[in-house]
Amino acid sequence: MSKEVERLSDPGLPDHVHRKADHDPAAADKAERQVSILFMLSVVGTVGFIVAYVFVPSDKFIFVPVMGSTNAQQLFLGLGLAAATLFIGLGAVHWAKTLMPDTEEVAERHELRSEEVDRQDFLATFKARGASSGLPRRSLIKRTLGLALGLVSVSPLILLRDLGPLPKKSLEETSWKSGTRLVTDPGDRPIKASDLEIGAVAQVLPELTPGEERTLNNIAKDAVLLIRIRPEEFQLSPERLSWTHEGIIAFSKICTHMGCAVALYEQQTKHLLCPCHQSTFDVPQAAKVIFGPAARPLPQLEITVDTEGYLIARKPFNQPVGPSFWERS
């Protein structure tokens, strides 16, 4: 292997240095006292723990420097338990260090590899026993067993099929329909265009039809953010501009990157920021991505007002909301 350079010679284990407690009985007694004091501190900790559990009310707060006003029960239960366990440990280690033998012992190490005889013996036995099973010769058994085992291992996967339904088109659909009113979240109040001042935002959801319930599954796709800016500030194609109403523009609040709620609207710069991964969207340019990992703008919801003047969706979203997936075209 290598041309081993000559090593410095091994001086061997250094001489054992005796501890004070090894030859001085007084020092040993002192160490014993220290260990038992540590164990007694653990006892005090357990007593404190029980006292805190039984007598400290859960609504009692005390002021502790650095920590501030702190719940007393939680603090004392914790400190009691900490002392109860920590001091057992410290005591045991101190005992081991000061009073148990501290002479280092040397144990021999043996190569893990088996003796050559044993290896040969094993190989011969294994081959002979394997052959006696007939498996190497009887290829029909070998193949059918392989097939059977292979197939049986598929069965758990089959059983897992009912974990969930197939996605079908559901990732592409939301509850927004043509004419759905936009209602505040929370509050469920319909809103008029005049309700929003310039620079105002509103978190909205589609209005529920009577008897309908809103689930988190709906919210996860339906959440929309309304923003009102001065109409002349839009830099939109005529088509997209027609999707807005009097300076009010509506975007899906579900980030196109990983689905967090994008709702950090900066009124002056008109940027929308996602707090999860800092994708930044420019509102006047139809939420174009100007920074961060998101690759697509937030889907824009086409809005208008109904006869009563309430804001409604003119059409459903024209693309799936939220993060990308394989089937998304």
Partner: peptide, 18 residues
């Protein structure tokens, strides 16, 4: 008033009571 970066929360969207 929506100072600086903060948007305005209109009274119809977030009512005075809210």
């Amino acid at each position: 008033t929506g100072p600086q970066s903060m948007p305005v929360f209109s009274d119809k969207v977030v009512t005075p009571e809210e």
